[in-house]
Simulated assay, not measured.
Amino acid sequence: MYLHIGQNEIIQEHRIIGIFDLDKCSTSKRTRDYLSAADKEGVVLDISGDIPKSFVVCDHPYHEQIVYLSQLNTSTLKNRAESRKLEL
Rank of each mutant, 00 (worst) to 15 (best):
S28E: 10
S28H: 12
K29M: 06
R30T: 08
R32S: 07
D33Q: 10
L35C: 04
L35K: 10
S36Q: 14
S36W: 09
A37G: 10
A38R: 13
A38P: 06
A38N: 03
A38V: 07
K40Q: 15
K40I: 06
E41I: 00
G42Q: 08
G42M: 03
G42D: 08
V43N: 15
V43H: 10
V44I: 07
V44H: 10
L45R: 15
L45K: 15
I47T: 08
S48G: 11
S48T: 03
G49Y: 01
D50Q: 15
D50F: 14
I51E: 14
I51F: 13
P52I: 01
K53P: 03
V57G: 03
D59M: 12
D59A: 12
D59E: 15
H60A: 11
H60L: 03
Y62E: 12
Y62K: 11
H63K: 15
H63I: 02
H63L: 11
E64L: 13
Q65Y: 15
Q65P: 01
I66S: 01
I66R: 15
V67K: 05
V67F: 11
Y68A: 04
L69R: 14
Q71L: 07
L72F: 08
L72P: 01
N73D: 15
N73M: 04
N73Q: 01
T74W: 01
T76D: 12
T76N: 09
L77P: 02
N79F: 03
N79E: 07
R80V: 10
A81R: 13
E82D: 14
E82V: 14
